[in-house]
Amino acid sequence: MRLAPAAVLLILAAAAPAFAQTTRGAGGPVRAQDRFYIGVDFGVQSGGDSFSDSFTFPENAETARITAPYETKSGPLFGMFFDVRVWQYLSAGISVTGHASEGDAQVTGTIPHPFFFDRPRSFSADVSDLSRGESGVHLQLRALLPVSRSMQVSVFGGPSFFQVDQDLVTGVRWTEAYPYDSVTITSMMTETRSESGTGFNVGADVGYFMSRHFGVGGRVQYASGTVDLPSASGTGSIETKVGGLQAGGGLRMRF
């Protein structure tokens, strides 16, 4: 995650000399002519954040305690943006991204003994295929750096709004047999918890146009925010970071 701002700067550094060369070669500045800039990208989003959720429930006249740690994984990313030039090389726009990943969790907990107080049965069980989906809406102010008539580089940034749909473990099922000194977890109950939050985004986009209106391009964006998901406990919330380093490429259109 900490590499993201550096990556953006690298792209900017690479773009600046190219802009200078193109300006010299063409004998004059490239003018911003197009009003709209649209793109559709496929790529990946980084993962790496971890968070944990705990909940309890009454069982055998005591309290069962369950803890589930989660880790966000990298996964496919889909994004599209729409910009409108507002003045010179400045434009305002909106982009949306969607990211999905699946993760695992090693759930641990204790289930009270049916016959005795203070003799909880401990367990550890793995649960897989926990889905996480992130939707982002990013408002962006963009500065266009026209390298040439066929290539344009832009940098952008602005506020982001996220929605997260995260599968959380909300219960466990187990089997036990006399004398009940251990439990065997047979399955986990999961529910998708959804919540929204805010953050920011910065990034850079490179477009190469084979024709007047159509081309291809790539973008690197760092979007970050936090979302307080409703805990499986039914009370309180758990904080999860959303976004991350997002990179992708796809189609570009200007007109």
């Binding site: 496919p76 889909f78 969607g98 990211h99 999905a100 996480r132 992130e134 939707s135 982002g136 929605q163």
Partner: peptide, 12 residues
């Protein structure tokens, strides 16, 4: 889930 996320994002 990805498609659902994109759809949700596109509508927002």
């Amino acid at each position: 889930r990805l498609i659902a996320s994109v759809a949700a994002a596109a509508l927002l």
